[in-house]
């Protein structure tokens, strides 16, 4: 069940330049699934809208979720000041996550670009939890050699890295890293900027591999009522019977072929 509550900050660390890792004590950690997200609310009464942030990890026993985010503006800047014991309003768990069932017994390729990397950790962990022998490869693209979450990912998957500036791994885009890895995936999950998702979708199509991508859009309600967060779909959507799906509730994870990324 979705809910809104005031959560306690368990810990917060800066894990790279402008990138923060935040653990929150929440009542819904047990229900949270890989690829789902939460809405964070600022303490500033003039910035009212939610900041959607993907769930990066969950500690279901301790009732905690981990969020990894980049400072992108005043809201996230404010979150970066939080310390253990502070409080923050959060709504979750929101959206539809990755179809982990489909990954069991398959060679899975997880592709993350930039701040799209955190949800790939939750996906990798969820697959491992259900299938300890799963063959999971993560292809992750960074701007530079800051490699946040690299160690976490390495613990649960084979990792190939690209950097835009060539300071580590493959010099180029994450798709260059994918090609370099000679991965032969049977299933792909991806999250990252639209240009990356477009390339991933194309790659999956060429390879004839099922592919699920996580989309991003401005949100107001986060629960499917305002129709603010739509993405263009290839078919008639179920909710409004036009070609527009709600990223917050029909997604953020969609089968790649259902989303029109043009």
């Amino acid at each position: 069940m979705k809910r809104k509550e005031t959560a306690a900050v368990v810990s917060q660390d800066r894990i790279a330049d402008g990138i923060f890792s935040l653990w929150l004590q929440v009542s819904f950690a047990k229900e949270a699934e890989a690829g789902q997200f939460v809405s964070l609310f600022t303490a500033d009464g003039t910035r009212l809208l939610p900041r959607p942030v993907s769930i990066c990890e969950t500690d279901k026993d301790a009732g905690r979720i981990r969020l990894v985010y980049r400072i992108a503006g005043a809201g996230t800047e404010g979150f970066s000041k939080l310390k253990a014991g502070d409080r923050i309003d959060v709504m979750g768990p929101l959206g539809r996550g990755f179809p982990i069932d489909l990954a069991l017994g398959k060679r899975v390729l997880l592709i993350g670009g930039g701040i799209g990397i955190p949800p790939m950790l939750s996906a990798a962990k969820a697959i491992r939890l259900r299938d300890p022998d799963a063959a999971v490869t993560c292809a992750v693209g960074y701007r530079t050699n800051d490699r946040y979450l690299y160690n976490d990912l390495s613990a649960v998957s084979d990792v190939v890295v690209s950097t835009d500036d060539g300071s580590y791994g493959v010099h180029g885009t994450v798709m260059d890293a994918v090609r370099f890895s000679d991965a032969d995936p049977q299933l792909i999950f991806a999250c990252g900027p639209k240009v990356m998702l477009r390339a991933v979708k194309e790659y999956a199509k060429t390879k004839g591999v099922p592919c699920f991508i996580s989309m991003e859009e401005r949100m107001a309600c986060g629960v499917g009522v305002c129709l603010g967060c739509i993405c263009q779909t290839t078919g008639i959507d179920e909710h409004s019977h036009v070609k527009k799906a709600r990223v917050c509730t029909d997604g953020p994870v969609f089968p790649a072929e259902e989303v029109d990324l043009t």
Binding site: L49, C226, L227, C229, I230, Q232, V242, K244
Partner: peptide, 17 residues
């Protein structure tokens, strides 16, 4: 059915949207 507008459809402003 109405299609509505393309994204982006939401913008935050001080004290509202």
């Amino acid at each position: 059915p109405w299609e509505g507008n393309p994204a982006p459809r939401i913008a935050e402003v001080s004290g509202g949207m």
